[in-house]
């Protein structure tokens, strides 16, 4: 019988994961699975373990106990260098603070991800910027871009290497309503094209875009529910 843990339609399977920092139990026996092409929102108050879970899924941290399978590969026994390789190959990261390299243009910021992944391709990077509506801002430095534009560059950078999983940490946390709508539209469009998306957010209206919402409280899963299909 096929092990459900390595079922091909499950891109992420987390089983009984705990993370303990000294006396603090950031995560306690969290289990979760995410299907390929699924859009999951992770919610919870501050200190609920959202960021810790995000770091573990994003291969930026390792659990104290439990198992994490990303695309069938166990992450819990991997070295730092192996985790870096998985981050490079399989995960696209979108940050609340955008985190663009200040001395590189929008285009070069996208190419940075190509450079660390494999080979730089200026044409492909420019296409990625076109896809987020920023072709005309390609030669601008981050300080010459608005917050919304910087976030779209961040999205273009996250997508440039065609990751299996897109992880977004409060992607609209620093944006106004117009830019928030623009970013959410991009995520919808990616979802329609089959991208697997996990969004960590405080905002109910952002979580409502997802197919499913997982709520964490005190490091435990408080609820895991399917959302109503999103309607504008």
């Amino acid at each position: 019988m096929l092990n459900p843990e390595i079922s091909p339609d499950r891109i992420l399977v987390i089983s009984d994961v705990s993370k303990i920092y000294g006396p603090i139990k950031a995560l306690q026996n969290v289990s979760l699975s995410v299907g390929s092409g699924e859009w999951l929102a992770i919610m919870g108050p501050s200190g609920s373990g959202k960021t810790t879970l995000m770091n573990i899924i994003g291969c930026l941290d390792s659990p104290t106990s439990g198992r994490v399978l990303l695309d069938g590969l166990g992450l819990d026994s991997l070295s730092s260098a192996e985790l870096t390789a998985i981050r490079r190959e399989s995960i696209g990261l979108i940050f609340q603070q955008f985190h663009l390299v200040s001395y590189l243009t929008a285009l070069e910021n996208v190419m940075v991800a190509q450079y660390y992944h494999s080979l730089v391709d200026e044409k492909e990077a420019l296409e990625a910027l076109e896809n987020v509506g920023l072709a005309d801002r390609a030669k601008h430095l981050p300080r010459q871009l608005s917050g919304g534009e910087q976030q779209r560059v961040c999205i273009a950078r996250a997508l440039i290497n065609h990751p299996k999983l897109l992880l977004a940490d409060e992607p609209t946390g620093n944006l106004d309503e117009t830019n928030e709508a623009m970013v959410m539209d991009i995520l919808h469009s990616l979802h329609k094209r089959g991208s697997t998306i996990i969004v960590v957010t405080h905002a109910l209206e952002v979580a409502a875009h997802a197919e499913r919402t997982l709520v964490l409280e005190h490091g435990r899963v408080a609820s895991d529910v399917r959302n109503q299909p999103y309607q504008k």
């Binding site: 994003g58 490079r88 190959e89 985190h99 660390y116 992944h117």
Partner: peptide, 16 residues
Amino acid sequence: RKEIGLKKALGAENKK
């Protein structure tokens, strides 16, 4: 530090 952390988060190897 933030830039270095970002590059490593993007998958940059330490040697690079």
